[in-house]
Design a protein around this nucleic acid. Sequence first.
DNA 1: AGAAGGGTGGAATTCGCTTTCCGAAATCGG
DNA 2: CCGATTTCGGAAAGCGAATTCCACCCTTCT
Lengths: 348, 348
Amino acid sequence: MARANEENRRKPVTLSDVARAAGVSQATASRAINGSQRTVNEELRQRIFTAAEKLNYTANLSAQTVARGTSTTVALLVSDIADAYFSSMAASVMTAAEAAGLRVTIAVTERSVQREIELVRELRGQHARAIILAGSGYLDSDLTEPLVRELEMFEDMGGRVVLVSRMDLPFAGVDLDNLEGAKRLASALVRLGYQSFRVLGGERELVATRDRVAGFRAGLDGHGITLGDDRVIYSNFSWEGGFDAIQAMDDRVLADTGLIFAVNDEMALGALAGLRNRGMRVPGDVALAGFDDIRSLRNIVPTMTTVRVPIEEVGREAIARALEVGDGHQPRVVTAIVVLRESTPRLN
Amino acid sequence: MARANEENRRKPVTLSDVARAAGVSQATASRAINGSQRTVNEELRQRIFTAAEKLNYTANLSAQTVARGTSTTVALLVSDIADAYFSSMAASVMTAAEAAGLRVTIAVTERSVQREIELVRELRGQHARAIILAGSGYLDSDLTEPLVRELEMFEDMGGRVVLVSRMDLPFAGVDLDNLEGAKRLASALVRLGYQSFRVLGGERELVATRDRVAGFRAGLDGHGITLGDDRVIYSNFSWEGGFDAIQAMDDRVLADTGLIFAVNDEMALGALAGLRNRGMRVPGDVALAGFDDIRSLRNIVPTMTTVRVPIEEVGREAIARALEVGDGHQPRVVTAIVVLRESTPRLN
DNA sequence: AGAAGGGTGGAATTCGCTTTCCGAAATCGG
DNA sequence: CCGATTTCGGAAAGCGAATTCCACCCTTCT
């Protein structure tokens, strides 16, 4: 197969090729094919389309972007695309984007603010239409200040910034009511009869950790139960984090625990593995609850109590906000609902 | 916050702004910042970089693409990004791409050839450097012929096509030895004492289905066991497919089955749920094996026997092939290894 | 009938950047 | 010390498409 050697690569057909073939000017061809304000004579249109078809013309997106000065690409920044939560979100964002005629490029931040900054910078160069920044934010403002600056420059350029579930920065976004969700979960669990809780948090600096822990604490407070600081164990916001945290727990502490709330499902799953590894039965010896309701929960036994984040809606809303104009920074809040399952049975 | 209204958007700083600020020509600035063949005087370099820094310059990627005629973007086409297998692959591809200085854009084909064709066409317009086409191919050549044509045009344009685990088309690629993997699995299972098998296939037209089923059958053959056509049940290549196939199975058929091999893990997980739903115990009543070794297997009990696909390696190889020049269509074969776990215990 | 106006095609400019192509200065060789 | 070669900055010509501006023609109204 001697196709496409470096030398004999046929150079792609351009708009002017099409125009020439159709016997019209480039301007007319452009107007016909991409439909501008101006109309073009029906017969010419036909000729142009026929020519385009015959030549197999496809518009050069980069050239269009340069000429128009704006692109139709939105960038989605996630911590880790292999994470079930983010990959579901990516799927929903892509579906919504598709419907809106937008392209999506995904980039991975590896949970590093530094990397986020680099990526935003690069995206400014790509003239992306919007940046959807998912993944939990950081509480440390020294850390995020340069990110904010970079994002502001992105907006200055005409781009739009949409935060997902991390309203720690002054931009538009769609927010999960982490606080309320966790609060209601706590409340529901108390009503099931649980009294002794431990919380598995992700990194301390994460907004999601803070909010979910705070919400859970508030929920318990409402029932007169105090969640001491010593009852919150911080590790990583991931499966391994959950697993390791359990491994590191003292036997007596574990024995004294009625229910473990992991601030996200991945951690809860890690914790589940960790508990089993230690010979504990769930929910027999200890009950377990998570947050997010990721898809892979459907595979486990016992079914797991969690707080469902309507991920489809999040994706849709994120794209909607990306397309909005104006400066509204009021986050659109998506409500999370408590889903009680077998991992937290009612106590007699 | 009155930043970035549509009207007062500061237009982005361009290379010529930088050049002017540094008191050099645009050509020199370009050479300094993007390093061409030619060198530029160290002092000027400094001046230019300082200016760029001060102005917060970022190169306009689209403009670069237009000017250079080639881009640094590779496209990854997957069936469904929310699928654990594909999201892991995406992660590994992105990591490898990052290391090679490439950008990745992900697009979702929704398991439709039509959609694949559209996407390839669009990517031709984007002048992507390469297209990595993952997700199982189709056996029906009437279906794939237009896809091949589109891909050939993409290559004619200078792009590179890399197939992953679907060497059904005449392009470079990285291939999983589905056949060998399934064959060895079958062999291992027979040695564990299993005799009565059922296979859960995905769509009949999928290359992956065909190869894995054929491999499994060949493996059994080697031990004198024949897998009749009636023992292969085709449904969808997804969790739901596995679940539904089990639901639809006749009680007596199920009772007569020693082991179910699902051609991928998602299906196996669906099958597991389906079996439990029918009150069957795994591996007590029936043993179960899958293929891929996706990450979420670590969450389930019993641990599941599967064939591990080294997804990191696949991603790395895919990017490597995307960067290769020349016409080699010999696929780089990645070997899958059998992993026996609790879902298929040794019999008696 | 003639002026005003709407519709429509085309030439030329523009977008931001890369890359020839030139020419001047610097370096080298004998 | 002078011609030959190399080095390096800048002017200008692209890259592919959008768009402005101009010219022309055909209506339409008076």
